[in-house]
Computed example of a mutant assay.
Amino acid sequence: MVSPSPRFLTLPDVAEVLNVTVRQVYALVRSGDLRGIQIGGRGQWRVEQVELEDYIQRQYARAQANLSELDHEHSSAE
Rank of each mutant, 00 (worst) to 15 (best):
Q57R: 15
Y55N: 05
S68N: 15
E48M: 10
D33Y: 07
V29D: 01
V17M: 03
R23E: 10
R23Q: 10
Q59F: 11
P6W: 02
P4T: 10
Q38I: 04
R62V: 10
L18D: 01
E78A: 12
W45G: 01
P6T: 09
E53A: 11
V2N: 11
L70Y: 15
I39Y: 05
P12R: 05
Y60A: 12
I56F: 10
F8Y: 15
T10C: 05
P12V: 03
Q38H: 10
P12E: 08
Q49N: 09
N19K: 13
S3V: 12
S76K: 13
P6L: 08
N19S: 15
R35A: 05
V2D: 09
A15T: 03
L52D: 02
L18K: 03
Y60E: 12
L67Y: 13
L28H: 01
T10A: 06
A15I: 03
V50I: 11
E78I: 10
Q49I: 05
I39M: 05
N19L: 05
A61I: 14
Q59A: 07
D33I: 01
T21A: 04
V20A: 03
L11N: 00
S75P: 04
D54E: 15
Y60I: 12
E78R: 15
N19E: 14
H74P: 02
V14P: 00
V14Y: 01
L67M: 10
R42D: 10
G40P: 02
L28F: 08
Q38M: 10
I37S: 06
E48Q: 13
S68P: 01
L34W: 05
A61M: 11
A27G: 06
Y55V: 04
L52A: 03
E69T: 12
V50M: 07
R30C: 09
L28G: 00
V17Y: 04
